[in-house]
C-alpha cells in the first residue's frame, strides 16, 4: 500500500531523512517510532504530498507522490501533530468544509459527516465552536477530519500527544477499530503505544532507518537469551537464599542467577539463560526436587523501550556525527 524507496529529505543545512526505505502492506497498523527530531514528521509530510522528497521515491496505493499527488491526496487522511482545525468554526461546519474539500459528493456529505461524528464520539459538541473545545475533543475532531472521506491510508502524527490517560486509551482503541479498512501509519515516541496498537514497527533515529519488523519479531530478535523470574519458598524451616542460588546455578543452560529479594521464607531470583536455551522446565524440576515450593516462574519480557535504546544507542555509536550534516 505504501512504498518508500531511498527517501531523502534535505533542508537548507540539515538532512532530516536520510535514505530510508520501507513498505507497508494493506490493512496494517504500523508504528513509526523515533525520538523527537528523528524525521518522523518529515517522512509523513512527504507521504501526504505536503512536501516533495529531495531524493528517492514514495508511493501510496501505487501512485507516486511527485507524479500524481492528486491521486495520492484523495487516498490519504492525515492528522498532523497539531489538529488542523479552525477555531471560529463549529464542529459540524468544519467537518462539512473538510468533506467538501476532500471531494465527497454533495449527496453523501451529510451521511459521512454523521458517520464520523458517531465514530469519533464528538456528537456532544457538534454545534460548539472548535476554539472552545478541550484538547481531547480537538484531537478527535482532527481524527474525524482525517477519516471523513474514508481514505485507504491514514497517517497520524503523534495522535495521542498531550492527551490525558483516559483520552489516550480512547484514542488508541479508536485507532485500532479503524484498522482493517484502513492502512494506518502512526508516529509516536511513546513505546507502549506501539506495543499496544501496532503490528509492525519502523524505528528511525536521526533520519536513518534503524529497524523495521513486526513488534513480535523485534522483541524476539533482540532477546537472544531468555530471562526468567523465579520465586522460591522453603517448605519447612528457613532456607538460605545462597543455598537456592547455588542449586539454581547448576541447572543446565543457566548463565547467570541474580538474587533479587528475600522476604522471610520467600526468595526471588532473576535468571538468564545461555543463548537459545530453554531453561524453564529444568528450573522448575530443580526447585521441586530440592523440596522447595515454586511460587512463581515467569519469563521477563524485554520491553520495546530496551530494544529502542539498544538500537538507537548502537546507531549513535556508529555515526557520532549524527544526522545533522553540513
Amino acid at each position: 500500500m505504501i512504498n518508500v524507496e531511498g527517501l531523502t529529505k534535505r533542508y537548507a543545512r540539515t538532512i532530516a531523512v536520510d535514505n530510508i526505505s520501507f513498505e507497508v502492506q494493506k490493512g496494517q497498523i504500523v508504528g513509526f517510532l523515533g525520538p523527537n527530531g528523528a524525521g518522523k514528521t518529515t517522512t509523513m509530510r512527504v507521504l501526504t504530498c505536503f512536501m516533495p522528497p529531495t531524493a528517492g521515491k514514495a508511493s501510496v496505493a501505487g501512485f507516486d507522490v511527485l507524479e500524481q499527488p492528486m491521486e495520492v491526496k484523495k487516498r490519504i487522511g492525515y492528522l498532523p501533530e497539531l489538529p488542523p482545525v479552525y477555531g471560529d468554526m463549529e464542529v459540524i461546519e468544519y467537518l462539512r468544509f473538510v468533506g467538501r474539500l476532500k471531494g465527497i459528493p454533495k449527496a453523501d456529505l451529510k451521511r459521512r459527516v454523521d458517520e464520523v461524528i458517531e465514530r469519533c464520539a464528538v456528537g456532544e459538541v457538534r454545534t460548539r465552536l472548535i476554539s472552545k473545545l478541550s484538547k481531547g475533543y480537538r484531537q478527535r475532531v482532527g481524527l474525524s477530519q482525517a477519516i471523513i472521506h474514508n481514505p485507504d491510508v491514514l497517517i497520524l502524527d503523534e495522535p495521542t500527544a498531550g492527551l490525558d490517560p483516559k483520552q489516550i486509551i480512547e484514542t488508541r482503541s479508536l485507532i485500532k477499530s479503524l484498522a482493517g479498512d484502513h492502512t494506518i501509519i502512526l508516529s509516536t515516541h511513546i513505546l507502549p503505544e506501539v506495543e499496544q496498537t501496532c503490528e509492525q514497527v519502523i524505528i528511525i533515529s536521526r533520519g536513518k532507518l534503524v529497524a523495521t519488523d513486526s513488534v513480535h519479531n523485534l522483541t524476539n530478535r533482540l532477546r537472544g537469551s531468555e530471562a526468567v523470574a523465579v520465586e522460591v519458598e522453603g517448605r519447612d524451616g528457613a532456607v538460605n537464599s545462597a543455598v537456592i542460588l547455588q542449586r539454581l546455578e547448576k541447572v543446565p543452560g543457566v548463565s547467570r542467577v541474580l538474587a533479587k529479594e528475600s522476604r522471610g521464607q520467600r526468595h526471588i531470583f532473576e535468571i538468564e539463560s545461555l543463548q537459545g536455551r530453554a531453561i524453564r522446565p529444568d528450573l522448575a524440576r530443580a526447585v521441586v526436587e530440592s523440596g522447595w515450593n515454586l511460587n512463581e516462574l515467569r519469563p521477563v519480557a524485554v520491553s520495546l523501550e530496551e530494544i529502542f535504546l539498544q538500537l538507537t544507542a548502537s546507531d549513535e555509536a556508529a555515526t557520532p556525527a549524527g544526522g545533522v550534516k553540513q
Binding site: C49, F50, K73, I76, Y78, P80, E81, P84, Y86, L101
Partner: peptide
C-alpha cells in the same frame, strides 16, 4: 500559524 495549511495542502485541491 494554525497549521491548517497542512489540511489545505494535503487535500485534493490545487
Amino acid at each position: 500559524r494554525l497549521g491548517t495549511i497542512e489540511l489545505l495542502a494535503t487535500s485534493p485541491v490545487r
